[in-house]
Structure formats: structure tokens, C-alpha cells
């Protein structure tokens, strides 16, 4: 008993290509779980039976950047790790988004120290910041929904005339 049962005759829908593409895109965001520290555990919790991230179409966690369009940076990013995070981000195909999960990634959080990057937006474009140390799984789901809203509003022209991202790091 699906949608077909309601339709009496052959139905049709009028929409724009943009709308249907962004609808499809936002409903199956594949995350790249960049689990670095404590937040990674809450990120796994978000995928467990209680919180079940699959309800939002994002249960397909891929550990290879080539198959993902969302990077969830979960955990404290040190200067040593920053090189790795940036390199993985560069390998992801366009279009791509970033969630900064937790206080450490957003601003350095409680780690005012010599080795911690004070906010990953210094070297990555971040779309959604999530508060909490670590954020509860609900909060991560909220961030995902916010991002879906943002993806839903994208138009094809947003991707046109976009400057090519510097691939220097990806190639060396």
C-alpha cells in the first residue's frame, strides 16, 4: 500500500530540477566519521539502536573519503592531526559539507594548550557548529537536520563558477 494506491490515474508532479536534486541529496547524506576523541563515542551512540541516525538517511558511515559528502569532525584536532583532517577533506568529492562536532573542534574548547588548534574553521570551511563537550547524540542529530535544511536550499547555480579548491595537499 504505497503512494500508488491513492492515485486513481497516472499521476505527475511538476517541480524544478534543483528542488528534486537537493531533496534527494539532503535525504541521504553519507557521513565520513572523522572520529578523533571523545565525541567519536557519542557519534557511534547516535548510530546505535536508541538514537538511530538511519532515520535521517545517514547511517552509511564510510571510512573512505571518496564516498562521502559530509565530514563530521568529532574530537580535539591537534596541529599534528590538522594536516590529516585537511588532507582527507581535500579527497572528498564535491559537493561536501562539514559538521564541527563539540566544543574542541568549534573553538578549542577546554584545551587552551600549545598543541590544540583553537577551532577547525582556521583551516576548514565549517557549515554547522555543535555545542557540548561532547554533544549528546540528540544534538548531533539536530546538527544533521540543520545541515539538511541548508542542503535543501542549495541551487545548481551555487555550485557554478565556484573556485576550484586548492588540490596541492591532495596531490603530494
Amino acid at each position: 500500500m504505497g503512494l500508488e494506491a491513492i492515485l486513481q490515474k497516472d499521476g505527475y508532479v511538476t517541480t524544478t530540477i534543483d528542488a528534486i536534486v537537493s531533496w534527494a541529496r539532503k535525504s541521504s547524506v553519507w557521513p565520513m566519521p572523522m572520529g578523533i576523541s571523545c565525541c567519536a563515542i557519542e557519534m557511534i551512540s547516535a548510530a546505535d539502536p536508541k538514537y538511530d541516525i538511519a532515520r535521517f538517511g545517514s547511517e552509511v558511515m564510510r571510512f573512505t573519503p571518496r564516498q562521502c559528502d559530509l565530514m563530521i569532525v568529532a574530537g580535539t584536532v591537534t596541529y599534528k592531526m590538522a594536516q590529516v583532517v585537511r588532507r582527507i577533506y581535500d579527497q572528498m568529492p564535491e559537493p561536501k559539507w562539514v559538521i564541527a562536532m563539540g566544543a574542541c573542534t568549534s573553538s578549542g574548547g577546554m584545551y587552551r594548550s600549545y598543541s590544540v588548534v583553537q577551532g577547525i574553521d582556521q583551516f576548514l570551511p565549517v557549515d554547522v557548529y555543535t555545542a557540548g563537550c561532547p554533544p549528546r547524540p540528540e544534538n548531533l542529530l539536530n546538527a544533521l537536520m540543520t545541515l539538511q535544511e541548508k542542503i535543501g536550499k542549495t541551487k545548481a547555480r551555487d555550485f557554478q563558477n565556484r573556485p576550484l579548491v586548492d588540490l596541492e595537499l591532495a596531490q603530494n
Binding site: I36, T76, Y111
Partner: peptide, 11 residues
């Protein structure tokens, strides 16, 4: 190691 070295002992 060291990719998550946050400098606890210094803090």
C-alpha cells in the same frame, strides 16, 4: 602516536 596529544600535563 601524538595525533591526539593535548598537553594535559602542561595544563
Amino acid at each position: 602516536l601524538g595525533y591526539l596529544h593535548r598537553g594535559y600535563e602542561k595544563m
